[in-house]
Design a protein around this nucleic acid. Sequence first.
DNA 1: CAATTAATGCTCCGAGTGAGCATAACCCAA
DNA 2: TTGGGTTATGCTCACTCGGAGCATTAATTG
Lengths: 351, 351
Amino acid sequence: MNRGLAHMPVTNHETFHVPSPRVDTAAAVEIGLNAAIVAVQHDEPVVLIVRDNPDDGGASDGLPFGPFSPLEHRTLDIGLRSWVSDQTGLELGYVEQLYTFGDRGRHAEANDTRPHVMSIGYLALTQASEIESADEGHWRSWYQFFPWEDWRKGRPEILETVIEPELTKWANQTSFHQNPFRLTDRTQRVRLCFGFDGGTWDEEKVLERYELLYEAGLVGEANRDRPERASAPTNILRRMGLPMRYDHRRILATAIGRVRAKIKYRPVVFELMPPEFTLFELQKTVEAILGPHLHKQNFRRLVESAGLVEPTGEMKTRTGGRPAKLFRFRREVLLERPAPGVRVKAVVARN
Amino acid sequence: MNRGLAHMPVTNHETFHVPSPRVDTAAAVEIGLNAAIVAVQHDEPVVLIVRDNPDDGGASDGLPFGPFSPLEHRTLDIGLRSWVSDQTGLELGYVEQLYTFGDRGRHAEANDTRPHVMSIGYLALTQASEIESADEGHWRSWYQFFPWEDWRKGRPEILETVIEPELTKWANQTSFHQNPFRLTDRTQRVRLCFGFDGGTWDEEKVLERYELLYEAGLVGEANRDRPERASAPTNILRRMGLPMRYDHRRILATAIGRVRAKIKYRPVVFELMPPEFTLFELQKTVEAILGPHLHKQNFRRLVESAGLVEPTGEMKTRTGGRPAKLFRFRREVLLERPAPGVRVKAVVARN
DNA sequence: CAATTAATGCTCCGAGTGAGCATAACCCAA
DNA sequence: TTGGGTTATGCTCACTCGGAGCATTAATTG
């Protein structure tokens, strides 16, 4: 499922070719593959964006996507790599399937002639150095789409100024509660997702937060998809990150959540790093992904004692201070530990 | 994505209905949904099996599966629940998407008239008490399909007697190695998956192990799908668990791995438990899922101090010894902790 | 040369966890 | 009725890991 460097070739994911069951009553649908292609450049997590023909009510940014044709490509993976290479010139390394969304066709009527499309979201990680080779598309910080997820400079103020009041308003629109918490269903969900009043912020719940905001009409896509319902006024929507075409922002949210989770138990950070790096560069990359800032000395101890890296023997001088030892990813760790990763805690950082 | 009791309604996963992009060059395929419906009865993890018309070379066991028709059902989830209810009478609670496999159609030739089928695997958890209501199908221990995964009575002997020698033989069929470990690629993968000679057994790598065995021709399905390649002799295949139709055993492997991982950071065990239970019953259920046996006193301390359960005040007398306090799942934990689960260690248990 | 900025080494402390010991309270069979 | 078997439950102790901070080293810059 991936060819990245940080993952051992545990399996080739060799193709299974088994007899097909008969699925008689299913209507045929088409398969679209969407890729969230992620890199970190200048300590900023970026994602590859395409923005041709803005046919979708204002949102011109989208993830690269392409069709999957089972006749042409044996597996979904291969199909993905193929059109990504064609479209962008990028040869993907690490690739991971995220989720299959089938709810594109809700508005389908009996007389709807458009084919039904099912979208399979993928996550791909690339090194910043390969970034130049992207022919089409350009890179954008993923926090432009999710400003409330950027905790690197402390708690994002948009949470106070916009999200908390708006969601509170939304939650209070319902009054029934049938749960053991004596809170409305909506209030609970808001608290769980955003950790208001005493709850904890779980940086992995990116998708849950986005879907909640969508449901509350606080992101542009909600307005686009359901103009009949009340959405937040435009001046608020404008502050809630850039919208994307189709359901691409949802897929990107899934991708961010997945990377944030995975970085803790698989050495996927190294997919984003050059072959040699200082420990501080590594830390910056982890922070770009996760958000909060980490304790420097403890981070060193963590990655070194976990055996994730080994010194190359070289030094890097232009650090701005004392020269730093260069390190490289230590592949052997995959043979030693069942789940090697940067096991950093979910930092509360409520400043 | 689920309606189970242990998960907070973080989001309704309200339907997104966005405009469909044009996917012109894709061939239409049909969507099949497969469900691994899991319960624990009498301390045994069981999965719902259907076994009508054994049209598939010997393997008569299969997972329940049904088509997805976007015209009928808004989301994949809803479609799944619908036909599961029709087929088996079960109303699913907790449901989770696993993976989408697209490599059904490799043997497709230009003149192949069968439609291409893509299979989306799902995991569902049910309580043992609801088991009677399954009209069709019957329940089978999942370890019948994966005997090497059952570590509850110590290291399964099939690892010594069959798997290790056969995989060693298979690994030695190649000699090239171009990696920093001085081992062949195959040798590394075998060691990583099965933890031979000093490696650790990671109970979550269920899928990786199955796929490796498939590739090595050590499971019946390999023989079925690729009769042209050499597989292990029948007397060995017979000991390697029951084969299943299509790629259902692969989906079940994915499901087992997912439950084993998820149980540690989400309170999904309680989906498998009755409303009230003793701590030992809870422990037995966790062990049924994970394999190795846990330290009883520490397990108590773990679940109690994590706030996962609360005493009901009742006692259960027929325990075989001293009466035990009854507990129930403490839902409030979801509001308190970001990732509540039975955080048991991967026990090495190499006896 | 002094100030600034990083890199790196080391310590201290407290929470969490693995492993046992010990006791309590039921059932059953002799 | 009593003792053995079995399970429940309380508690201790040692050890590890992770969070936080102090101190020192070594480059750059003005």
